[in-house]
């Protein structure tokens, strides 16, 4: 995990695609040979959005039910950037280009206790981690939250595989997720692995920090795919360069600016590295910071943002670039 493994793309064949809930499909990919899946690992997939090639990250559903296959669980995000619509349109026999699997969480065995916390479709990477923890005899607890059962895939299988260890909070049924309580009740030495919407992850991080828990014991991974607001169209300009762009709902500000002729620096494309950070001159709408590079203080100040993932919630944004 030192550095980043160089991307190696290869073809996989869609073997099966089946509904899990009304929003989520389980897509089974045949890699055509043995592939090692690290617990909590994900693959990158080359998708087509409005006829343009893009890449998306999907966590692998490593539930042991399809040996030797790469399985992803994809929720159709109506207000998303379009990757999930492409994935839901796949049919058996289709060929996909993928890269990985890679491990973003770095599950460490041998800890005293584990808390696996998922929001909605965020359960996918935790499924493989839970299996490893169960098989090693670890003390672990799984908490799955969502607004409705339809937004909480794989719950039945999880309960069957981990009797007595799975709890769920369904806000639509009145059982809300109590993040402060989870942190309070987590005994000393607990390691937390969390995957879910940005709002949930950020709130958990704040409680964790306020409780004085070690930052390195809270493990998260970001694909920069969610924010605290749904994605909406907005406009952006770089006055110094005379560049104006409209950023559609399903495109990133970075892509829109590059298409409009701006020479942008960037790298990770998921809001981690900070290379695409730009200066905000003014904005007529709130900024939806979707990165994990800037601190809460820096985000609140609204002087800078990361163009690869962050957006304005409608309105008009004026920036300057390096």
């Amino acid at each position: 995990m030192a550095g980043r493994e160089r991307a190696r793309w290869f073809d996989v064949r869609v073997e099966r695609t089946e509904p899990v809930t009304s929003e989520v499909r389980r897509i089974v990919l045949d890699p055509g040979g043995p592939v090692a899946v690290p617990p909590g690992g994900h693959i990158e997939v080359a998708v087509q959005v409005d006829g343009r090639p893009q890449t998306r990250c999907y966590s692998l559903v490593d539930d042991g039910r399809d040996a030797g296959r790469l399985v992803v669980g994809v929720r159709l995000a109506p207000d998303g950037r379009g990757g999930s619509r492409y994935m839901h349109g796949l049919r058996p026999g289709d060929t996909l280009k993928v890269c990985g699997p890679r491990d973003g969480f770095g599950l460490l065995p041998g800890r005293e206790r584990y808390l696996l916390l998922a929001g909605g479709i965020g359960i996918t990477p935790l499924i493989g981690m839970a299996r490893v923890l169960r098989d090693s005899g670890a003390d672990y607890r799984i908490v799955h939250a969502g607004r409705s059962r339809d937004a909480m895939p794989f719950l039945d299988g999880l309960r069957a595989d981990h009797p007595g260890r799975v709890e769920c909070a369904v806000s639509g049924e009145g059982t809300r997720l109590d993040l402060a309580g989870l942190v309070r009740d987590a005994p000393e030495g607990t390691e937390v692995y969390v995957c879910g919407p940005m709002r949930m992850v950020e709130e958990l991080r704040r409680h964790w920090q306020q409780a004085g828990r070690p930052a390195s014991a809270l493990r998260l991974e970001t694909f920069g795919s969610s924010g605290t607001h749904p994605a909406t169209e907005f406009t952006v300009e770089i006055p110094r360069l005379g560049i104006h762009a409209t950023v559609p709902r399903n495109e990133s500000m970075l892509d829109a600016l590059r298409a409009a002729g701006a020479d942008m620096m960037f790298d990770c494309l998921r809001g981690e590295c900070g290379l695409c950070e730009v200066r905000v001159l003014s904005t007529t709408a709130p900024i939806d910071h979707r990165d994990v590079f800037l601190s809460d203080r820096q985000k609140a100040a609204e002087h800078t943002l990361c163009t690869c993932v962050s957006r304005a919630v409608g309105g008009h944004l004026s920036i300057d670039v390096p």
Binding site: R219, T222, E272, V292, L294
Partner: peptide, 10 residues
Amino acid sequence: QETLNPSACV
């Protein structure tokens, strides 16, 4: 930087 990159590990 003021944050820790979540991928930063060996």
